[in-house]
Amino acid sequence: MEETIAGAQDIQTAGRIPQQRGESLLDNAVRYAEERHWDVVPGTWLEAAVGTQRCSCGDASCPAPGAHPARPDWAAQATGSATVVRRLWQKQPGASILLPTGRSFDALSVPESAGFLALARMERLELTLGPVTLAPDRRMHFFVLPGAAAKLPDLVRRLGWSLASLDLAVLGEGAYVAAPPTRFGSRGAVQWACRPTPANRWLPDAEELVSPLAYACGRDR
């Protein structure tokens, strides 16, 4: 147990990649479109208000201030064109970066504590990971091949769990993840726990990661 926690803490420390100074949201959004060929869409942004920051949506109790879709047709607005991306963020430089799931990838979402336990286990098993985000709402998102949404219930059932009993969700068509360096109000910015690199351009299938993720979620209950 102590070894597992120590391993997770080591990975947590290593995974907290500092923001690259001078890089704007626009720079990052363009990079995602150009280098990873991901569709991106601008979301809401943060606005100064009486010494604090509020979401551009105007909801004082917004659960994800500055980090959710800004319009109902956000999915149709998503683009993989770097030229269009530049134009969109030049109009609103503070807009959050949202990556639609169900296109280039799906995302397996788990609590932060379970995510770090799973990362430690995956490292020992020498599993190949895709990108992994760590958000200020204390959720981690593991990028996997599209189609995970349809597979996950059966994969978890084969392991002896029911999906309803685990805090393990899949984001597929119609959903999104917020990408670094998007900020969640005053809670901080989304970070890469596992940064996109040429080595992880080819994503794992959900089947390759579900066992350590389900195990970690079960331990984290």
Results as ranks from 00 to 15, higher is better:
residue 96 S to M: 05
residue 124 R to D: 12
residue 47 E to D: 06
residue 35 E to D: 13
residue 16 R to D: 14
residue 106 D to S: 01
residue 60 A to N: 02
residue 33 A to I: 07
residue 194 C to Q: 15
residue 161 W to F: 15
residue 75 A to W: 09
residue 162 S to R: 14
residue 70 A to T: 04
residue 200 N to I: 05
residue 9 Q to D: 11
residue 113 S to L: 09
residue 11 I to D: 04
residue 73 D to E: 14
residue 145 L to S: 13
residue 142 F to G: 06
residue 61 S to R: 13
residue 133 T to C: 09
residue 102 G to R: 05
residue 139 R to C: 08
residue 115 G to D: 01
residue 103 R to Y: 05
residue 99 L to A: 09
residue 97 I to C: 07
residue 179 A to K: 02
residue 69 P to A: 08
residue 115 G to K: 01
residue 191 Q to M: 09
residue 60 A to S: 12
residue 72 P to V: 12
residue 43 G to K: 04
residue 175 A to Q: 14
residue 8 A to P: 01
residue 18 P to H: 01
residue 94 G to I: 03
residue 175 A to V: 00
residue 166 L to S: 06
residue 143 F to H: 11
residue 114 A to R: 01
residue 80 G to M: 00
residue 167 D to M: 07
residue 122 M to Q: 09
residue 108 L to W: 02
residue 58 G to M: 07
residue 221 R to I: 07
residue 37 H to N: 12
residue 27 D to F: 07
residue 121 R to C: 02
residue 64 A to H: 08
residue 221 R to Q: 13
residue 89 W to L: 04
residue 211 S to W: 06
residue 117 L to Q: 07
residue 123 E to C: 00
residue 184 F to P: 00
residue 73 D to C: 02
residue 71 R to D: 08
residue 28 N to V: 05
residue 116 F to D: 00
residue 142 F to A: 10
residue 209 L to I: 02
residue 75 A to Q: 13
residue 38 W to M: 09
residue 87 R to C: 06
residue 154 D to F: 10
residue 133 T to D: 03
residue 150 A to S: 12
residue 22 G to R: 05
residue 190 V to F: 09
residue 191 Q to Y: 03
residue 86 R to P: 05
residue 111 P to H: 06
residue 4 T to P: 01
residue 168 L to T: 03
residue 8 A to R: 00
residue 122 M to Y: 02
residue 50 V to Y: 11
residue 149 A to E: 15
residue 168 L to G: 00
residue 163 L to S: 12
residue 61 S to E: 15
residue 36 R to N: 06
residue 90 Q to S: 14
residue 1 M to A: 14
residue 170 V to F: 04
residue 64 A to R: 11
residue 68 H to L: 04
residue 89 W to R: 03
residue 160 G to S: 09
residue 111 P to V: 10
residue 158 R to E: 15
residue 146 P to S: 10
residue 33 A to R: 04
residue 26 L to N: 05
residue 35 E to W: 08
residue 184 F to W: 15
residue 126 E to D: 15
residue 204 P to H: 02
residue 14 A to V: 11
residue 156 V to A: 10
residue 126 E to A: 15
residue 184 F to L: 15
residue 107 A to C: 07
residue 145 L to P: 01
residue 98 L to E: 05
residue 203 L to V: 05
residue 69 P to D: 04
residue 20 Q to W: 06
residue 37 H to S: 13
residue 119 L to F: 05
residue 77 Q to I: 08
residue 175 A to P: 00
residue 46 L to Y: 02
